[in-house]
Nucleic acid binder design. Structure first.
Length: 431
DNA sequence: CCCACATGGGTGAATTGCTA
DNA sequence: TAGCAATTCACCCATGTGGG
């Protein structure tokens, strides 16, 4: 995934002449000029370039500076060489990442150095810098932060995702196509009276401009959501669409026009990051007075436990469910489900769910594992051999249930066999 | 607004792989 | 090699998307 791309940062951190260890060029290099910081990553022109980016507005984010130095192999190392030499300081608190802001010490434009030759053209605005971020080398924020930590202190990785939300009136739909920061994977929301549509696009700006998703004319409000660092892959955006759809389904002010999106195959850790991303979106839209206005903030930030109509009513483990009880044995695991009169199936709590999904399985098999692990509806079995379902969950068919529990298309309707559920059958599930 | 097309779920058949 | 389990494939259908 793009967000996890690596580059040479870790190597630089261990390098004996990395910024942390040789900030003043004590390894024998000469000081060519007292106003120049001597460091392998810093040529005089790079130093001047970085400082002019900072001076253009008085400060700059590390990500912006990196974006302005597309040809540089270690732009972050260069920035930290200047920080270590007290030419720049980090003015934001907390963990160093691409959003951290650097400036001259005490607001001094010269930062204690004479920058008389600081005459390079002014840096571009942060917006254009972000627009060119795609061409810059990927930023390894964890390597960047670890380079600044004392020995034995480790950085705990956190989600690199941060939403950027652009909104506008529906009549300006076409304008979304021309916004550089929307020419990337993302999701969008259309509002019209009490109707809402949640969609995704691999180029979300173009998707908004071209689509005909609202059946009754144009939407009143369009909301476009991308990641600050273009960190969403196409599959992330598909999964995020389904996660956000689920959040929106709990907003009683609106009814959804579209059905459950397909989602995408996703691993549980990435799902958790996308769910956090979605809750940041929810908070922003609530604070903007647009959506998610009912109930407490805490209530709104916790996504619904499952999509509408999926969760079965609470049931004691030894109570018989409504319908005909069926059993599926697969891959050494067992699942029980109840086939109901309306054709839907209820997968019973306590059923085994295989941890892996095969390549040919549908996106839902992987997505639902991640979603229900996130919600606590699936838990890993004590011996780690499989997941165990904690609540009854509804499916559209026996084939769908078999597909989900086995993580493979091979276990369809014909794989199930009816059983007479005695106490021992249900007791088995209770274990 | 209509229609053609793409996509994905549901299903059973075919194929592959493992083990006794 | 036979038998079984696991996986993939092919088909049909419903739904959503995008172009005219």
């Amino acid at each position: 995934m793009k967000a996890n791309a690596t580059h040479s940062g870790p190597a630089a951190a261990r390098n004996p002449i990395s910024p942390a260890n040789d900030v003043l060029g004590l390894n024998g290099a000469d000081l060519v000029h007292p106003g120049l910081v001597n460091h392998p990553t810093l040529s005089p022109s790079i130093q001047v370039q970085i400082l002019s980016i900072v001076d253009a507005t008085g400060s700059a984010s590390i990500g912006d500076i990196v974006a302005e130095l597309p040809g540089h192999t270690d732009p972050v190392g260069a920035i930290f060489a200047l920080i270590a030499a007290d030419v720049l300081v980090v003015v934001t608190a907390g963990i160093i990442d691409a959003h951290s802001i650097v400036a001259r010490p005490d607001g001094d434009p010269n930062g204690g150095f004479n920058s008389e030759d600081d005459e390079t053209p002014p840096a571009t605005s942060p917006d254009t810098a972000a627009g060119s971020a795609k061409d810059a080398p990927p930023i390894d924020v964890s390597a960047l932060a670890e380079a600044s930590l004392p020995p034995d202190l480790l950085l705990v990785p956190s989600s690199p995702l941060k939403p950027r939300i652009v909104m506008g009136p529906g009549r300006r739909r076409a304008a979304f196509k021309h916004v550089p920061i929307l020419q990337q994977a993302g999701v969008y929301i259309f509002l019209r009276a009490h109707s809402v549509y949640v969609g995704f696009g691999t180029d979300v700006g173009a998707r908004i401009a071209a689509g005909r998703q609202m059946p009754d004319g144009t939407p009143n409000v369009i909301i476009a959501i991308t990641d600050m660092q273009d960190g969403l892959s196409d599959e992330d955006a598909r999964a995020l669409e389904r996660i956000l759809w689920s959040y929106v389904s709990s907003d009683e002010d609106f009814s959804l026009i579209n059905g459950v999106p397909d989602g995408a195959p996703i691993d549980p850790d990435r799902y958790d990051q996308l769910a956090l991303f979605a809750s940041e979106v929810v908070l922003a839209l609530r604070q903007a007075g647009l959506m998610f206005l009912h109930g407490s903030v805490r209530e709104r930030l916790a996504s619904p436990r499952a999509e509408p109509e999926r969760l079965g009513a609470p049931r004691r483990i030894d109570d018989l469910p409504e319908g005909r009880v069926m059993e599926l044995n697969y891959c050494g695991l067992t699942a029980l489900a109840a086939e109901r009169d309306d054709g839907t199936w209820l997968l019973l709590r306590g059923s085994d769910v295989r941890i892996e999904t095969v390549n040919s399985a549908s996106a839902s098999a992987s997505f639902q594992r991640a979603a229900w692990l996130h919600a606590g509806l699936l838990e890993e079995a004590r011996d780690g051999s499989c997941y165990v379902l904690k609540r009854d969950i509804s499916f559209s068919s026996g084939s769908a249930v078999g597909h989900f529990v086995s993580g493979s298309r091979g276990f369809g309707l014909s794989s199930w066999r009816a059983i007479e559920p005695g106490d021992d059958e249900l007791a088995e599930l209770a274990c």
